[in-house]
């Protein structure tokens, strides 16, 4: 229950300024955005939702930066990875571990 889930704002309720309709992986739901008063939430914004309340606005720039970091690491190790992948004992790891990671 401690987990938050990301959702995207579809509609702001004009009559109830602390409520918004959001899309959470295809499910539409009204949630309370009163804890984000100072964030000036707009349609299209991504927010983190926990027990019916938006707790924080998700920063797309930061999300992209984090991914860029991961991409860079990926590049630096691409060769090593190729070597890893061509290694015979690692076939099993290739087969098993990625599934574990993707859940």
């Amino acid at each position: 229950m401690c987990l938050g889930i990301p959702g995207q704002v579809l509609e702001l309720m004009t009559e109830h300024p602390d409520l918004a309709r959001v899309d959470v992986s295809g499910v539409r739901r009204v949630i309370n955005i009163g804890l984000l008063d100072e964030e000036n939430i707009q349609i299209g914004d991504w927010i983190l939702i926990h027990v019916g309340f938006a707790l924080s606005k998700i920063d797309e720039t930061e999300a992209k930066a984090a991914l860029q970091f991961l991409e860079d690491i990926g590049d630096a190790y691409a060769d090593e990875l190729m070597a890893l992948q061509s290694s015979a004992i690692l076939d099993e790891q290739q087969a098993e571990v990625p599934d574990a990671v993707r859940g």
Binding site: L67, L81, P98
Partner: peptide, 16 residues
């Protein structure tokens, strides 16, 4: 969100 799959990329995990 749309980034979720990328945060589960197994190649990136191995690189890290």
């Amino acid at each position: 969100m749309r980034y979720v799959d990328e945060y589960r990329d197994a190649d990136k995990a191995r690189a890290l």
